[in-house]
């Protein structure tokens, strides 16, 4: 089997994979980083969203070998150095941006991607950027609210609590 090497959350990792191994399978099964979820496995739900070389991708729709020599960030690398929640995670917690939590790793990774290039996104820009992330619990309102809060904006115009 071919070998694959990458840097995941700042650490060098390597392993042997089948050519057909998906990046999300390598991350979950080989690296045991199970925070990246598989919701649909058909590229629609975004629960497996991670960053590869700084870009948001769906890890279920990329081969592990395509990420060879890349830098990968997953939800496990998002907390602050002391283990406390980072500002996005804290905002999701504070504003009830999750119920069951299954979609949350993908939501947090998509949010981190958005805020990298747009530090004060509008509600419309937030909803547009989360187009590829499905949540079946919250109805999205509190997720949008959490992201407005994480970017230091007024959340009072978002209706749902």
């Amino acid at each position: 089997m071919p070998d694959v090497k990458m840097i995941v959350n700042g650490k060098k990792v390597s392993g042997f994979v089948e050519c057909r191994t998906l990046l999300v399978e390598f991350i979950r099964n080989d690296l045991q980083l199970t925070g990246t979820h598989v919701g649909c496995d058909t590229s629609q739900c975004g629960a497996c969203a991670i960053h590869v070389d700084g870009k948001l991708v769906k890890a279920c729709t990329m081969l592990a070998l395509e990420a060879n020599s890349c830098e990968v960030s997953t939800i496990e690398g998002q907390a602050n150095e002391d283990g406390s929640l980072n500002f996005i995670q804290q905002a999701f917690k504070d504003h009830h941006g999750l119920q069951c939590g299954f979609c949350t790793p993908g939501m947090v990774m998509a949010t981190a991607d958005l805020l990298k290039t747009n530090s004060k996104p509008t509600e419309l820009e937030i909803r547009d950027h989360l187009e590829g992330n499905i949540c079946r619990c919250t109805g999205y309102h509190n997720i949008v609210k959490a992201i407005l809060a994480a970017s230091g904006q007024d959340t009072s115009l978002i209706a749902a609590e």
């Binding site: 975004g46 948001l56 991708v57 769906k58 729709t61 990329m62 998509a110 950027h129 187009e131 590829g132």
Partner: peptide, 9 residues
């Protein structure tokens, strides 16, 4: 096209 993650690939 698609969504932000799809557009990156």
């Amino acid at each position: 096209i698609g969504d932000a993650a799809v557009r990156n690939r």
